[in-house]
């Protein structure tokens, strides 16, 4: 792969940051379309990046940027990607802190967001459908997905506990069943 210029990484992540409303998961569809269109990160890698970004502490969207930036240009790439992805929200919040706190009561803004919020939910669901097609290949993998959904959505279990348990279980089972893991 040709070396991607740092300013380009910065610019693409600034664009991603500017259109991420509603937290880390809302970033996934935008990252996916921007990354795979440019051939920066393949569709297969995305679930890995999401899983690892969620296991690390901090803001998930930032973790994804650090991760993706590193894949492109090492540490310098991850700095460019991180600064890019936080720049739009930094400037917008700064502007709000400086000028208009009454902004949120603006009727135009309220109406536009009534249209945006349901749409954002679809944008979270579509990459999930794509990931499910690729990764839920057996019945027990479907079961795992449904279990995670129910525990988090309806029982309020923290995702980190679920990821930790699955990590340990998956590692253990793989280790015991596949003895030839040493390369």
């Amino acid at each position: 792969m040709k070396e991607v210029p740092l300013w380009k990484i910065f610019a693409v992540f600034a664009k991603i940051g500017a259109f991420t409303i509603g937290g880390g998961y809302a970033m996934i569809p935008v990252i996916r379309s921007e990354m795979s269109r440019r051939g920066w990160i393949s569709e297969d890698e995305l679930p890995d990046i999401v899983a690892l970004s969620q296991s690390a502490p901090g803001v998930m969207a930032v973790n994804i940027s650090i991760f993706a930036g590193y894949r492109l240009r090492g540490v310098r790439g991850s700095i460019a990607a991180t600064l890019g992805s936080i720049l739009p929200s930094f400037l917008i919040i700064l502007a709000i802190a400086l000028f208009f706190t009454a902004f949120k009561d603006n009727p135009w803004v309220i109406r536009a967001f009534k249209g945006i919020r349901p749409v954002v939910i679809s944008l979270i669901l579509v990459p999930m459908v794509d990931m499910a097609r690729k990764s839920c290949t057996t019945w027990w993998k479907w079961l795992l997905a449904v279990l995670a959904l129910v525990l988090v959505a309806f029982l309020g279990v923290s995702p980190i506990w679920i990821l930790m348990c699955v990590l340990v279980a998956g590692f253990g089972v793989t280790y015991l069943t596949e003895r030839k893991w040493k390369r």
């Binding site: 679930p47 890995d48 990764s135 997905a145 995670a148 525990l151 988090v152 699955v166």
Partner: peptide, 18 residues
Amino acid sequence: GTMGWLRPTVVGLIAAAA
């Protein structure tokens, strides 16, 4: 092998977020 467990879990977590 481990990722084969984690990937479907992430699918469930994203569904939960929605």
